[in-house]
Lab assay of single mutants.
Amino acid sequence: GPGLTDLFKTEKAAVKKMAKAIMADPSKADDVYQKWADKGYTLTQLSDFLKSKTRGKYDRVYNGYMTYR
């Protein structure tokens, strides 16, 4: 089956995709945050998933999740 690194890459891609969806349409934020909360994502995990070469690119999404939880 898929190894943990593959799983991480898949999760990371999914999280980034959802983060971009929030940035494009902030009204989606609560739905996405709820999904992440259901998956039990911690802020540390989210921070790892949303690492970007562009500093602060996903800060709004991260901060939103922090206040959501």
Results as ranks from 00 to 15, higher is better:
Ala14Glu: 14
Ala13Tyr: 09
Arg69Trp: 12
Ala21Thr: 12
Ala29Tyr: 02
Asp59Leu: 12
Thr42Glu: 04
Lys16Trp: 03
Asp59Tyr: 10
Leu50Phe: 04
Gly56Ser: 05
Ser52Leu: 03
Ser52Ile: 09
Thr5Val: 12
Tyr41Asp: 01
Thr10Gln: 14
Met66Val: 14
Asp25Trp: 04
Lys39Ala: 13
Ser27Leu: 10
Ile22Gly: 01
Tyr68Arg: 02
Lys28Pro: 01
Thr44Tyr: 10
Lys12Met: 14
Trp36Tyr: 01
Met66Arg: 14
Ala21Pro: 01
Lys35Gly: 09
Asp59Ser: 09
Ser47Asn: 09
Ser27Gly: 08
Met18Tyr: 06
Lys28Ser: 07
Asp31Arg: 08
Lys57Ser: 04
Tyr58Ser: 01
Gly64Ile: 01
Pro2Ile: 11
Leu7Ile: 12
Asp38Gln: 13
Lys17Phe: 08
Tyr62Ala: 05
Leu43Ser: 05
Thr44His: 10
Tyr33Gly: 00
Gly1Cys: 15
Pro26Asp: 05
Ser52Arg: 04
Ala13Arg: 13
Thr10Val: 11
Met66Pro: 01
Thr54Ala: 06
Ala24Glu: 09
Asp30Asn: 14
Tyr58Pro: 01
Arg55Val: 15
Met18Ile: 03
Ala29Asn: 03
Lys35Arg: 11
Ser27Thr: 12
Tyr65Asn: 00
Ala37Cys: 11
Lys12Asp: 03
Met66Glu: 09
Gln45Ser: 06
Ile22Tyr: 00
Thr67Asp: 12
Thr5Met: 13
Leu7Phe: 12
Asp6Phe: 05
Leu4Asp: 15
Leu43Asp: 06
Thr10Gly: 08
Thr42Ala: 04
Ser47Thr: 09
Ala13Ser: 09
Ala37Arg: 09
Met23Gln: 05
Thr67His: 14
Tyr41Ile: 14
Val61Cys: 02
Lys39His: 08
Tyr58His: 03
Arg60Phe: 12
Leu4Met: 15
Gly3Ala: 12
Lys16Ile: 15
Asp48Ser: 14
Arg60Ser: 13
Ala21Val: 09
Thr44Ser: 12
Ala29Thr: 05
Gly64Gln: 03
Gln45Glu: 08
Lys35Met: 14
Thr44Gln: 13
Tyr33Gln: 00
Tyr68Ile: 02
Met66Asp: 06
Val32Asp: 01
Lys39Leu: 12
Asn63Ile: 14
Lys9Asn: 11
Ala37Ile: 12
Tyr41Ala: 00
Gly64Asp: 04
Asp25Cys: 09
Ala29Asp: 02
Ser27Val: 05
Met66Thr: 04
Leu46His: 00
Lys39Ser: 08
Ile22Trp: 01
Met66Trp: 07
Gly40Ala: 04
Glu11Ala: 06
Gly64Tyr: 02
Asp38Arg: 09
Phe8Asn: 07
Lys9Trp: 08
Val61Ile: 11
Tyr65Thr: 00
Arg69Gly: 04
Gly64Glu: 05
Lys39Pro: 01
Ala37Thr: 09
Tyr33Ala: 00
Met18Arg: 02
Met23Asn: 04
Lys53Ala: 12
Gly1Thr: 13
Gly56Asp: 07
Thr10Lys: 14
Thr10Ala: 14
Phe49Thr: 02
Gly56Arg: 06
Val61Trp: 01
Lys35Trp: 08
Lys51Asp: 15
Leu7Pro: 12
Met66Gln: 14
Ala19Glu: 00
Thr42Cys: 03
Arg60Glu: 09
Lys57Phe: 09
Asp25His: 05
Lys51Gly: 11
Phe8Ser: 07
Lys53Leu: 06
Lys9Tyr: 08
Met66Phe: 08
Asn63Glu: 14
Lys53Glu: 13
Asp6Trp: 04
Asp38Ser: 11
Lys57Arg: 06
Asp6Ser: 12
Ala19Met: 02
Gln34Phe: 05
Ala13Thr: 07
Lys51Tyr: 08
Phe49Asn: 02
Met18Thr: 04
Thr67Ser: 13
Lys9Ala: 10
Thr42Ile: 03
Asp48Tyr: 12
Tyr62Phe: 15
Ser52Phe: 05
Arg69Ser: 07
Asp48Trp: 14
Lys16Ser: 04
Val32Gly: 03
Ile22Val: 11
Leu7His: 13
Lys17Ile: 09
Leu50Cys: 02
Thr5Cys: 15
Pro26Arg: 04
Trp36Ser: 00
Asp30Ser: 12
Gly64Val: 01
Gly3Val: 10
Leu50Lys: 01
Lys17Asn: 07
Tyr65Gly: 01
Ala14His: 10
Tyr41Val: 07
Leu50Val: 03
Lys12Gly: 07
Lys12Leu: 05
Thr67Met: 13
Ala19Gln: 01
Ala21Gln: 12
Tyr58Gly: 01
Phe49Ile: 06
Lys28Tyr: 07
Ala29Pro: 01
Ala13Leu: 11
Lys20Leu: 12
Asp48Ile: 15
Leu7Gly: 11
Ala14Asn: 11
Arg60Asp: 08
Ser47Met: 13
Tyr33Pro: 00
Asp38Glu: 14
Met18Gly: 06
Lys28Met: 13
Pro2Glu: 12
Asp38Val: 09
Glu11Trp: 04
Ile22Arg: 00
Tyr62Asp: 01
Tyr62His: 04
Asp6Val: 10
Asp48Met: 15
